[in-house]
Simulated scan of single mutants.
Amino acid sequence: MTAARFLVVLDADSTLIRNEVIELLADEAGRRAEVQAATEAAMRGDVDFAASLRSRVAALVGVPVSAFERVRARIEPTPGVRELTAAVHERGGVVGVVSGGFHEILDGIAPGLGVDRWRANRLEVVDGALAGRVDGEIVDAEAKAASLQAWASELGVPLRSTIAIGDGANDLKMMAVAGLGLAFNAKPAVRAAASLVIGPQDLSEVIALLP
Score class of each variant (00 low, 15 high):
M1P: 13
A3Q: 15
R5F: 02
F6T: 11
F6Q: 12
V9N: 00
L10D: 08
L10A: 04
L10Q: 03
D11W: 04
T15V: 14
L16S: 10
I17A: 03
R18I: 04
R18G: 14
N19H: 04
E20W: 05
I22R: 05
I22M: 00
L24T: 09
L25M: 12
A26F: 05
E28T: 02
R31Q: 08
V35R: 10
T39I: 14
E40I: 13
E40R: 13
E40D: 14
G45H: 06
G45T: 07
D46Q: 12
D46I: 09
V47L: 12
F49W: 06
A50N: 10
A51N: 10
R56V: 12
R56E: 09
A58S: 13
S66V: 07
F68H: 14
R70M: 02
V71H: 01
R72A: 14
R72L: 03
A73D: 11
R74V: 02
I75V: 15
P77F: 01
P77Q: 04
G80E: 11
G80H: 12
G80P: 00
V81K: 01
R82V: 08
E83N: 10
L84A: 06
L84W: 06
T85E: 05
A87L: 00
A87T: 03
A87V: 03
A87M: 00
G92C: 10
G93H: 06
V94N: 02
V95G: 11
G96D: 12
G96K: 03
V98R: 08
S99G: 05
S99P: 03
S99L: 00
E104Q: 15
L106C: 07
I109L: 07
P111K: 07
V115N: 15
V115I: 15
V115C: 15
D116Q: 08
D116G: 11
R117I: 10
N121M: 11
R122Q: 13
R122A: 14
L123D: 09
E124I: 03
V126C: 01
A129T: 11
A131Q: 00
D135H: 07
D135R: 15
E142T: 08
E142H: 10
A146S: 15
A146V: 05
A146D: 15
S147A: 14
L148Y: 02
Q149N: 01
W151C: 10
A152H: 05
A152V: 06
S153M: 04
S153N: 06
G156R: 14
V157Q: 02
P158Q: 07
P158A: 13
P158N: 13
R160G: 13
R160I: 09
S161H: 13
A164G: 09
A164K: 05
A169L: 08
A169V: 07
N170R: 09
D171M: 09
M175P: 10
A176D: 14
V177S: 00
A178T: 10
G179K: 06
L180G: 03
G181L: 11
N185F: 05
N185P: 12
K187Y: 14
P188C: 05
V190P: 04
V190Y: 05
V190W: 04
A192V: 05
A193V: 01
S195L: 02
V197K: 06
I198S: 04
G199E: 15
P200Y: 00
Q201R: 15
S204I: 11
V206K: 09
A208I: 05
A208L: 08
L210Q: 01
P211W: 09
P211Y: 05
